[in-house]
Design a protein around this nucleic acid. Structure first.
Length: 867
DNA sequence: CCATCGACTTGCAGAGATTCCT
DNA sequence: AGGAATCTCTGCAAGTCGATGG
């Protein structure tokens, strides 16, 4: 099965790191990071426009509307550019560029996707509004994915959108026949034994909270039962890595299973079923990820036959309403070490200052942030100073931050960091080992007899609050959390964890089995809020609710047609509340906006759908809406969308007589909206649309675009679909500091290769004329190659150049797109798993170790699964 | 109905680990 | 071997949404 060798098939997709979130409102965040200076600029009409300043553009062609990713796809341009409104494609979305700068960089992701799609419809394929009505028979397909549907498939070899332009029309007719492949109830089966049913409760008696790392004992049995094997080929870490139990096990197993590593899942499944012997020996070497393949074999079979796993995502049968667990054991939380004073003094008006350890600790927090963007935020400094002065005391000489010089501490801190970096591998390993020992016992909980990983067992250390965007509380001191701040939740019969700090005690012990948290404390910044300790994502409890979420989203598929019909009807309702609900639902469906809860004044000023302000949505005739607002995490959402005329008119009317800062949907909030959605489908809320649209887009793109070919090509298809989803959801990342350097490096290399080609060509013509090749640059004579060899070399080099050009484009294209978030939170893993099985793509090419663990509940999904 | 509480999911950045390239 | 590029994992902030109680 060498074709799946790790070594080959370098993914075409290369991640570039981000540093510059050009689509964030630069005017808001003066964070001047190197990558960020491509500020969004307020254009004359008050629009923010992302303008890339000085970044080398990569597009070979720069038509006014050319994007980096599809610079050559031009036929569409004419349609798009003159009117500044590009048709979004079949579903009626329209993206237009606020400015016709040469790249997409300043554009919202969502605009980019539309644009790309519209490009795909080039060659005169109609994407006029008439052809993108909602009544479109595609109903049931999310608007956003209709785009995809109709957008063309791209050729296997490339992600380049500029290769897409030629086949736009065909796809239109290839309406999805989704239902045809949907399996009856595959979706609802969970294969992993869940919670406390007979087997596990039986087990639980044996389980104790062992703390010795890696000791293989009964602790592992439940796990190995449900996760028999690893199908993963984890990129195993070196010995220096913190090795906690699972990793140890993974390693061991990776060895054992090596042969499987490159075997397609589908094959492995057979294999595993056939070889229960081997897995018996593996029983002890369990891994987090193992449920994928072999679960169906041997003892898990036993377990499952007896309905060992839960069919629905409901709580275990014996549990009452809302019961989450029956027995729960854990060891509480671990605290950060106490502060160690360093004695380095800050200067106040040039004079060294003596500070108490407490004062010094806070000063050090600040000093460590001297090289961050927070230093440019007056609010940060003000808040910091306010809290620090409380610790300095009223009469302290230090009064003004301006007169403080933290450089000595800053430099000390840098030196410490450097020291750490310079440590030998051995020293580092030793340090890790030690930390491991200390933490091992906190790492695990036992829930209904199943050993599960705990997510965040470390109590947050004190520090300065780093709010995102323009958070009013940035810079405030986040005080140290003590045991007396912490409430523990644990099983009634469990031993109460010992308080790790001598002489102190927990605030409270609860035995609440209707919740999943193991501990919580009040957020020191906002005491009304809580910080919880939960189980890790790989836990059964989390897995169940994850599955529930995706099943809910799938359920929406059956309702979406009706829902769309309903809101379309209500666009013109006499009842203004109804109309607002309809339009809001439309936006949530079409643009995957978040619900938008109300926010307090002491939070950053961001919005979602229900909290959109008048100024966030500018109508532009004839039927374009220009969105521009800061969403979650103060990420800028900027998009121009062609909407149905009735929506356009409704928005205009909602805006009438209001000021810019007034609520666009004044009759609406999330609870009303969700209450309405629940009438349309049980359990439906706004966020379900995001999951639905993301997952169905992936499903459809995968099924449409996957071609025959090696798995590397298929992975490119996957990345492409993943990217579209990320764009729909507006998942962004900052551009890495080194991005432009990397790009120019790539360019240089390409240029070099081009020179090589030229040389080869001249040699070739000389050789053909019977002359010897010219001497090379260093003056040495070249080997006298025959014409065939030269031609081969030329072809090779050209291929290399092409590949690099593609890499470059992909890199540029993805520099602001974060693929991970959707993979973790929005894409039903069963889509991916089934697709991998169908196409013999090793799942570990798509899911890393933690995702494999997180999605263990989905691993033996039927290959026919469709979302 | 509304405000607040409470629990849980989603999201980005940065640190650390691993792989790639020379 | 060593540094850069890339990937993974952790940390913790910031959302969503149901429940509660007045």
């Amino acid at each position: 099965m060498d074709e799946y060798d790790e070594e080959d098939g370098p993914l075409v997709f290369r991640r570039s790191n981000g540093t510059s979130k050009q689509s964030q409102l630069e005017t808001v965040k003066h964070d001047g990071k190197p990558g960020r200076q491509k500020a969004s600029v307020l254009s004359p009409n008050g629009q923010y426009t992302g303008i890339e300043n000085g970044e080398t553009e990569v597009s070979p062609v720069k038509g006014p509307m050319a994007t980096t990713s599809s610079a050559e796809a031009s036929p569409v341009k004419s349609r798009v550019e003159s009117s500044d409104q590009s048709n979004q494609g079949p579903s009626g979305e329209a993206a237009r560029e606020p400015d016709s700068e040469e790249s997409d960089d300043g554009k919202p992701l969502s605009a980019r996707i539309y644009k790309e799609n519209s490009k795909k419809h080039s060659n005169g394929v109609s994407t006029s509004p008439s052809d993108i009505k909602h009544e479109d028979p595609d109903d049931g397909i999310p608007l956003s994915s209709k785009l995809m549907l109709k957008s063309t498939s791209f050729t296997d070899k490339s992600l380049d959108s500029n290769k897409l332009e030629h086949n736009g029309s065909v796809i239109r007719d290839n309406k999805l026949k989704r239902s045809s492949t949907v399996l009856g109830d595959v979706g609802s089966s969970v294969k992993r034994p869940k919670l406390s049913d007979t087997s596990t409760s039986m087990k639980s008696e044996k389980i104790t909270m062992k703390t010795e790392p890696g000791v293989d004992d009964d602790d592992d049995v439940p796990i190995s039962k449900r996760m028999k094997t690893s199908s993963t080929k984890p990129k195993l870490s070196g010995a220096s890595k913190p090795i906690y139990r699972e990793q140890v096990l993974l390693k061991a197993e990776a060895k054992i299973e090596e042969d499987d590593d490159h075997v397609p899942i589908s094959m492995r499944m057979k294999k595993s079923a056939a070889s229960s012997k081997t897995s018996a020996s593996k029983e002890k070497v369990t891994t987090v990820t193992s449920s994928f393949v072999k679960k169906s074999s041997q003892n898990s079979k036993k377990l499952m036959k007896k309905s060992k796993y839960i069919k629905s995502s409901k709580a275990p049968p014996e549990s009452g309403e809302g019961q989450k667990w029956t027995t729960l054991l854990h060891n509480g939380v671990i605290f950060p070490p106490p502060y160690k004073p360093h004695g380095v003094k800050i200067l106040y008006k040039g004079q060294p200052m003596n500070l108490t350890p407490e004062q010094e600790e806070v000063a050090t927090m600040y000093a460590a942030m001297l090289d961050t963007e927070y230093m440019n935020k007056p609010k940060f400094k003000e808040n910091f100073m306010g809290d620090w002065r409380k610790i300095l005391g009223k009469k302290h000489v230090i009064r003004s931050l301006e007169d403080c010089n933290f450089t000595p501490i800053y430099e000390w801190h840098q030196r410490e960091k450097e020291k750490k970096k310079q440590m030998s591998t051995k020293e580092k390993a030793a340090l890790k080992e030690e930390k491991m020992k200390l933490e091992d016992k906190y790492m695990w909980a036992v829930v209904d007899g199943q050993k599960e990983k705990v997510g965040n067992f470390r109590v947050e250390p004190p520090g300065l609050f780093r709010g995102r965007g323009e958070h009013p509380k940035m810079g405030k001191l986040k005080k140290r959390i003590r045991p007396s701040d912490i409430t523990i939740n644990i099983g009634k019969d469990a031993t109460i964890p010992e308080c790790p700090i001598p002489g102190e005690r927990w605030k409270e012990i609860r035995h609440d089995n209707t919740v999943t948290w193991l501990a919580f404390w009040n957020d020191p910044i906002n005491p009304k809020e809580f910080k919880y300790v939960f189980l890790a994502a790989s836990s059964s409890l989390k897995g169940q609710s994850d599955m529930k979420k995706y099943n809910k989203a799938r359920e929406l598929k059956g309702f979406i047609e009706g829902i769309r019909a309903a809101y379309t009807k209500d666009f013109a309702s006499k009842d203004i509340t109804k109309r607002q609900i309809a339009v809001a639902t439309y936006l949530i469906d079409k643009l995957a906006l978040r619900a938008g809860n109300e926010k307090d004044d002491d939070e950053a000023d961001t919005v979602g759908c229900c909290t959109l302000k008048v100024e966030n949505v500018e109508p532009k005739p004839p039927n374009i809406l220009m969105f521009d607002f800061l969403g979650k995490d103060s990420i800028r959402y900027q998009n121009e969308v062609e909407v149905e005329l009735s929506v356009y008119k409704a928005i205009q009317q909602f805006r009438r007589g209001k000021r810019g800062n007034d609520d666009l949907f004044d009759k609406l909030d999330t609870s009303k909206l969700n209450a309405h959605l629940k009438e349309l489908m049980p359990g439906l809320t706004a966020k379900v649309f995001r999951t639905y649209n993301a997952s169905i887009t992936l499903d459809e793109m995968l099924s449409k675009e996957t071609k025959e070919g090696d798995f590397a090509e298929k992975i490119v298809v996957y990345q492409h679909a993943n990217k579209e989803v990320a764009i729909i959801c507006n998942h962004q990342r900052t551009v890495s500091k080194s991005h432009s350097a990397q790009m120019s490096k790539l360019n240089e290399k390409i240029d070099e290769l081009k020179v090589v080609v030229e040389e080869l060509e001249s040699d070739l013509s000389r050789v053909k004329k019977g002359k010897p090749p010219l001497k090379s640059a260093d003056g040495k004579p070249k080997r006298n190659l025959n014409p065939e060899a030269l031609e081969r070399k030329i072809a090779q080099t050209n291929a290399k150049i092409e590949k690099m050009e593609r890499d470059k484009e992909t890199k540029e294209d993805l520099k602001t797109v974060a693929l991970g978030t959707s993979k973790i939170n929005y894409l039903d893993p069963r889509i991916t798993i089934a697709w991998c099985k169908r196409h013999e793509v090793p799942i570990e090419k798509i899911f890393n170790k933690s995702l494999l663990a997180k999605f263990s509940w989905a691993m033996d999904e039927d290959p026919c699964f469709r979302f």
